[in-house]
Nucleic acid binder design. Structure first.
Lengths: 214, 214
DNA sequence: CCTAGACGATCGAACGATCGGTCGGCTAGG
DNA sequence: CCTAGCCGACCGATCGTTCGATCGTCTAGG
């Protein structure tokens, strides 16, 4: 992460503007103005506009992946694992909505080489979901016709949070997370009502990863 | 819809390119080349680049809305209604993936005036979902803590289909639609396994609205 | 039947503006 | 004196859009 204050301003301005207008909708002059530097000075902190985008996306995915791994290692129960994945994913997309929106929307703006790096990260993350759903299916706990459809459906549902949720609205974050977890587990489970995952553990990981109290 | 062949080429090229690269990622010259006209000739068929985008988005929503209204009028059972909404939404996002992706991603590229028109259309469509979920909740058939969360979660899940589904893949369209309907109804319903909605009716509407056999 | 003129479609060339990015030089603190 | 931070000025390229002219086709009047 950025330590230099100017670097932080640049990074934050880029996240905000890319999320609002899209990568190609933001010029470097506009970006420089938002970061309170001149267009020329901008290039002391970034390699290029595109590398800036790739860095933002990669770091966002890196945090999400590390949080998800922290939450699922040594957890045997697939329902508990999936519940934690959903909870963390939803919270991440709520408290880091702009970053995650950029990750979800701007892959196409990257040239093949940079895109590859980001996609690999994303695939590593989604692999966690795939394994968990597969384990649940094999254990007879989940009932999807097709694991891939279920994985995609749940991931898109949870990522969509970044597109509409506002922390300033009436919906509290823990209620959001618990209802999403409920929807996700209920839609996949074969048997009775699934339990809530270990929320305290998730809270700890969120605090550690994104520095946000939940 | 466009009747003039050149107009059709322009429209199709715009949909394809906007979906692939984003509105600001496509230049007029690139668009003209893809439509096999000169950049100047393009302006005999469009008012401006932005109006072209707005037209595409509005027409796509218009078709989706009319299809949804056709499918739900005079249907009393909220489960049947929601099942049909999900089925149509998923199929629309599968067979018209590019248009719907543009609708979902490019609202931000529209100036306020044009954006207003498109948002009004979208809200009219989502209102159908809201009413249906509300009816189900009041009838005791659905069990969400919060209707708004459920609506958004399901809409995002279904819209996400446009981002990953490929008709050329191994997943057949009717299987996709039925599994999504199953996930949606299962996640909301209070009681037993919900029935599948009237698939034949949905098929007929799809054929009528988008001209696609399912 | 011929022709004048209106018409829709098309395009080459160019407009001013903005794009992403570079360069040389200025300033301030160690 | 060195270096990191910063910036005004500028680069060639591309942006969305407009203009005037040229096509072929159709129609009305003589």
């Amino acid at each position: 992460m950025a330590v230099n204050p100017t670097q932080t301003r640049v990074r934050n301005a880029a996240i905000r503007l890319f999320a609002k207008k899209g990568f190609h909708g933001v010029g470097i002059r506009e970006l420089a103005q938002a970061a309170k530097v001149s267009p020329a000075s901008l290039y002391h902190y970034i390699g290029s506009k595109e590398e800036l985008l790739a860095d933002i996306m990669w770091e966002s995915l890196e945090r999400l992946l590390s949080a998800a791994m922290l939450a699922t290692t040594d957890v045997a129960d697939p329902q508990e694992k999936l519940g934690r994945l959903v909870t963390l994913h939803v919270i991440a997309h709520a408290v880091q909505a702009k970053e995650t929106a950029v990750v979800d929307n701007e892959l196409r703006s990257l040239a093949p080489k940079l895109r590859r790096r980001v996609i690999d990260k994303r695939d590593a993350y989604e692999q966690l979901w795939a394994e968990t759903i597969e384990q649940g299916s094999e254990a007879g706990l989940f009932r999807p016709d097709h694991d891939g459809i279920a994985r995609r459906a749940l991931l898109e549902m949870c990522s969509g949070v970044a597109r509409w949720y506002s922390p300033k609205g009436e919906i509290k974050l823990d209620r959001l997370a618990s209802q999403f977890t409920d929807i996700a587990l209920r839609s996949l489970s074969t048997g009775d009502a699934p339990p809530q995952p270990d929320m305290d553990r998730c809270r700890t990981i969120v605090k550690y990863t994104w520095g946000t109290r939940v």
